[in-house]
């Protein structure tokens, strides 16, 4: 038996009855003060539009150079994927894989899975493999680190500017926008899609 009208605090197991929230209101747990759920101004169309934008910006952020350097007439530039490759040389392979997962694979999966779910959500139905996609969106969320890459780019620019001439490339600006978009679409409350899209006969567990 299930109780869709109830909500359980995931940090302390307190049980509450759900109530409707006004704009920008946040429901907090009375016992541990954690966020239970929050009102979202973004409807499904907004989310889909932002996800498509994120997909385009993701490509730019990965292909375009993030930093260009020059010294004594020579110059060089690097993008995200080249940086991961440089880290993966020899004994660095393990940490290279961690970087590849957190900076490339996880953000890509977030965009793809969310895009898949939202395209079907526009037709008010759950996508094939909806449960699978939603479980994985929840599971990989803590491992999405685009914002850490952005801060790392800024630190690297300062670090290198002591000895070389350094400029931020278009990849840096794309990363900045991507950080904002991923925060909006996939950082919090992806789970509300469960409630926004009621089950029908197309639901499957995908396991």
């Amino acid at each position: 038996m299930t109780h869709p009208g109830l909500v359980i605090c995931e940090y302390c197991d307190s049980v509450y009855r759900r109530s409707a929230l006004g704009d920008d209101e946040i429901a907090r747990c009375g016992r541990c003060r954690a966020v239970l759920y929050r009102a979202s101004r973004l409807d499904l169309d907004h989310l889909l539009a932002l996800t498509l934008a994120a997909a385009i910006v993701f490509v730019i952020a990965n292909v375009a150079p993030v930093i260009r350097i020059a010294v004594s007439g020579m110059h060089n530039e690097a993008n995200l994927l080249q940086s991961i490759a440089a880290l993966s040389h020899g004994s660095g392979l393990v940490v290279g894989l961690v970087a590849a997962a957190t900076l490339f694979v996880v953000p890509l999966l977030q965009i793809v899975l969310l895009g898949w779910v939202l395209v079907f959500a526009r037709a008010r139905r759950r996508a094939p493999g909806f449960a699978f996609a939603m479980r994985w969106l929840h599971r990989i969320r803590p491992w999405s680190m685009t914002e850490v890459f952005l801060l790392g780019v800024l630190v690297a620019i300062v670090k290198l500017s002591g000895m070389l001439s350094v400029i931020a490339g278009p990849g840096t600006y794309a990363t900045l926008i991507l950080t904002g978009l991923i925060t909006l679409i996939a950082k919090r409350d992806v789970r509300t899609l469960w409630d926004r899209l009621p089950a029908d006969e197309t639901v499957e567990f995908g396991e």
């Binding site: 060089n76 530039e77 940086s83 290279g96 680190m145 850490v148 890459f149 801060l151």
Partner: peptide, 18 residues
């Protein structure tokens, strides 16, 4: 996860200074 910062900086510097 912000501790991953140093990993990112090393990756960028190694990719650039060649």
């Amino acid at each position: 996860y912000w501790s991953m910062l140093d990993v990112v900086v090393v990756a960028l510097v190694c990719a650039l200074v060649q």
